[in-house]
Simulated assay, not measured.
Amino acid sequence: MVDAIIVLSGGMDSAVLLADTLEQGKTVEAISFDYGSKHNGRELPMARELCEHFKIDHEIIPLPFINELFSSSLLSSGEDVPDGAYMASNMKSTVVPFRNGIMLSIAAGYAESVEASEVLLGSHSGDHHIYPDCRPEFNNAFAHAVNVGTDGKIDIRFPFSHLNKRDIGDIGRRLGVDFSRTWTCYKGGRIHCGTCGACDERKYALRHEQGLDVTRYLV
């Protein structure tokens, strides 16, 4: 029996969520999505390595239609990812339309198929103002729809929704998460660029200014 399915991107938030859920003694499987983002090629190997480290089952699900049909600078088919602070005015172009809704729907179907009782996603309060499918209104409504649509078998949970990214970084540090084995940069280069909004937020989360961030950046 599996207690929980974790949507694991290979980023720091989902890595901490995985470690925290295992710390609670739950039986876990992870699923990741290859949807054509610029950084999928950097994230997915990290997700795979995390699952190997924790000795849990891992599925990577291809969703090529997102890159082919959707518009976002986060996708390899889109424009350049902007530099600058992690603010709505700057990061709006990185919204992938209804991404979480699509991924959570698939995760819910998978959870029901393997008889898991919940699906966990690591979205946090810092995402709310930029990404509409990370906001509490979406989370509550979607969780209700999935519960109804599965005859009460599946609960969708967002354990970090009340936390900011620095809170998550601190939890991960307490749990011994190796953040050098996670990926954040939206540009998907050889190492983190250090200038895009995602890198800017990662620096804040991992207390870069205090010398605690193990990430290598170009800048």
Rank of each mutant, 00 (worst) to 15 (best):
E118W: 13
V119C: 08
L120A: 08
L120I: 12
L120T: 01
L120R: 12
L120H: 04
L121F: 14
S123A: 12
S123K: 05
S125R: 08
S125F: 00
S125D: 03
S125G: 02
G126T: 02
H128G: 07
H128C: 08
I130E: 01
I130G: 01
Y131W: 12
D133E: 10
C134A: 11
R135A: 09
P136Y: 01
N139A: 14
N140W: 05
A141I: 11
A141R: 12
F142Q: 12
H144Q: 13
H144L: 13
V146L: 00
V146P: 07
N147I: 01
N147E: 15
N147G: 09
G149Y: 02
G149F: 03
D151C: 12
G152V: 03
G152R: 10
G152Y: 09
K153G: 10
K153E: 14
I154W: 08
D155H: 13
I156P: 00
I156K: 02
I156N: 00
I156D: 01
F158R: 00
F158W: 11
P159N: 11
F160A: 00
S161G: 08
S161F: 02
S161C: 04
H162Y: 08
L163D: 01
L163Y: 07
L163G: 00
N164Y: 07
K165C: 10
D167C: 06
D167W: 07
D170W: 12
R173W: 09
R174Y: 09
L175F: 10
V177K: 07
R181Q: 15
T182E: 02
W183L: 06
T184I: 04
C185F: 00
C185S: 05
C185M: 04
K187I: 06
K187W: 01
G188M: 04
G188Q: 02
G188Y: 04
G188D: 05
G189N: 08
R190A: 15
I191H: 05
G194A: 11
G194T: 07
G194M: 09
D200I: 13
E201W: 13
R202P: 06
R202F: 01
K203M: 13
K203C: 03
K203S: 08
A205T: 04
A205R: 00
L206S: 03
L206E: 05
L206K: 01
R207I: 12
E209H: 14
E209I: 13
E209R: 13
